[in-house]
Simulated scan of single mutants.
Amino acid sequence: MLAITGVSRSFGGVYAVRDVSLTVADGEVCGIIGPNGAGKSTLFNLITGHLAADRGEISFLGHRVDRLPPHRRARLGMSIVFQAARVFRGMTVRENVMVGLHGRTGAGFVSAALRLPRHRRDERLIAAEASSALERVGLADWASRPADRLPIGQQRALQLARALCARPRLLLLDEPASGLRGEERERLAVLVEELRAGGLTILLIEHDVAFVTRLADRLVVLDLGQVIADGPPAEVRADPLVLAAYLGHAS
C-alpha cells in the first residue's frame, strides 16, 4: 500500500528524518512511535505532501507520490486526521463533514451556482452520507451545532468522520488520542478496531505507547529521525534500543 525508501528531511542542517525506509501492507495497522523530537510529525508531513523530502522516494498503490501536492495524494486515496483540530468556522458539524464528500460529486460550479437538479440531488446524497458518518463516530446529536463550538474530543471525531467520507484506501492518524479523556480515548480505540476489522489500512502516529500497542499489527520506532526498530508490538517494546530511547541508556 505504502512504500517509503531512503527518505530524509533536514532543517538548517539538522536532520529531522534521516534515511527512513518502511512499508505498510494492505489492510495493516502500522503504528509509528518514538520519544519527543524523534521525527514522527515530520515523517507524517512528508507522507501527506505537506513537506518535501530532501531525498528518497514515497510510493502509494504502486505510484510514486513524493512529487505530488497533498490534494493529488488525497485523490489517490489518502485521508488525513491531523493532531490539531481543523474545522471550518461558521459551518455546522454536518456541513464540515460534507466537505469531505464534495470531491466525489459530479456536479460542477455552474450546476451548483444555478441550483440545478443534479446539484440538489448530489447535496441530498452527501448530506445523508455525512449523517451516517456522524452516527458512526458518535456525533449524530451534534450534527446541527456550530463545529467550532465542539469540545476538542468531538472536533477530533468530526475530522475522522470527514476523512472517512472520502472512502480512503489509507487513513493517516496523527496522534489522534492527544488531549482526549479516558472515555473519549476508549471510544476512539474501539472505532479504529472496527475500521481495522473492515479492512482499512491505517498508519497511526502516536506518542502514547500503550494506546498504539493495543491497535497496531506492527510498530515502527523512530529516534533522532532514524528507524531503530520495526516488528510486532510485543517484540518492539522489549527491544533494548527502544527502552534506551524512552528511558535513557542509564536505565
Score class of each variant (00 low, 15 high):
88 F>T: 06
89 R>N: 14
90 G>K: 07
91 M>H: 14
91 M>G: 11
92 T>R: 07
93 V>C: 12
93 V>E: 06
94 R>V: 14
94 R>Q: 13
95 E>R: 08
98 M>V: 09
98 M>C: 11
98 M>I: 09
99 V>N: 02
99 V>C: 13
99 V>P: 05
100 G>E: 06
100 G>S: 06
102 H>T: 15
102 H>L: 12
105 T>V: 15
105 T>M: 14
105 T>E: 03
106 G>Q: 15
107 A>Q: 02
107 A>F: 08
108 G>K: 01
108 G>R: 07
108 G>P: 10
109 F>T: 06
110 V>A: 15
110 V>N: 01
110 V>I: 10
111 S>W: 00
111 S>V: 00
111 S>N: 07
111 S>F: 00
112 A>M: 11
114 L>C: 04
115 R>Y: 00
115 R>P: 02
116 L>N: 02
117 P>G: 14
117 P>I: 14
118 R>L: 13
118 R>K: 13
119 H>W: 15
119 H>F: 15
120 R>N: 07
120 R>M: 12
122 D>C: 05
123 E>T: 07
123 E>N: 06
124 R>H: 02
124 R>T: 11
124 R>S: 11
125 L>I: 14
125 L>K: 15
125 L>M: 14
126 I>M: 11
127 A>Q: 14
127 A>Y: 03
128 A>C: 02
128 A>H: 12
130 A>M: 01
131 S>Y: 02
131 S>N: 01
132 S>L: 09
133 A>K: 08
133 A>S: 07
133 A>G: 01
133 A>E: 11
134 L>H: 04
134 L>R: 04
135 E>G: 10
136 R>C: 02
136 R>G: 05
136 R>K: 12
136 R>M: 07
139 L>A: 07
140 A>Y: 00
140 A>L: 06
141 D>H: 14
143 A>R: 05
143 A>P: 06
144 S>F: 03
144 S>C: 08
144 S>D: 15
144 S>H: 14
145 R>M: 06
146 P>Y: 03
147 A>C: 11
147 A>L: 09
149 R>Q: 13
150 L>P: 04
150 L>A: 06
